[in-house]
Amino acid sequence: MQAGDRVTVEASVVVFNHPEHRGKAFDLKGQTGEVANVLNDWKGRVISPTLPVIVAFGRYKAHFRADELKAAD
Rank of each mutant, 00 (worst) to 15 (best):
D67Y: 11
E20P: 01
V9M: 07
W42Y: 15
E10T: 07
A11I: 00
F57Y: 15
M1Y: 03
A72C: 07
D67W: 11
S12Q: 05
I54Y: 05
V7A: 10
A36E: 12
L69Y: 07
G58N: 04
V55Q: 11
V38D: 11
Q2P: 00
G58K: 05
S48Q: 10
H18I: 03
A56L: 07
A11M: 06
I47T: 11
L51Q: 10
K29F: 04
H63N: 06
A66F: 08
A62P: 00
K61P: 00
R6P: 00
R45C: 06
A11R: 12
V14T: 14
G30S: 08
D73A: 15
I54V: 06
F16W: 07
R22C: 02
G33L: 02
D27L: 03
N40R: 14
N37I: 01
Q31M: 14
D41C: 10
L39E: 13
H21M: 06
V38E: 09
R6G: 04
R6D: 11
K29S: 09
S12A: 13
T8R: 14
A3D: 06
A56E: 12
A72M: 04
E10C: 05
R65W: 02
T32G: 08
K24L: 03
G33V: 02
A56R: 15
A71C: 03
V35L: 13
R22K: 08
H63S: 15
D27P: 01
F57L: 07
L69R: 05
N17V: 03
V14Q: 10
I47H: 06
H63I: 00
W42T: 14
H63L: 09
I54K: 06
G4F: 11
V7H: 04
K70M: 10
K43W: 11
K43H: 09
K61T: 11
D67P: 01
A36T: 01
P19L: 12
V7Y: 04
L69P: 00
I54E: 06
S48I: 02
I47G: 04
L51G: 01
G30R: 09
S48G: 05
L51Y: 15
L28R: 00
Y60E: 08
G33I: 01
A66E: 10
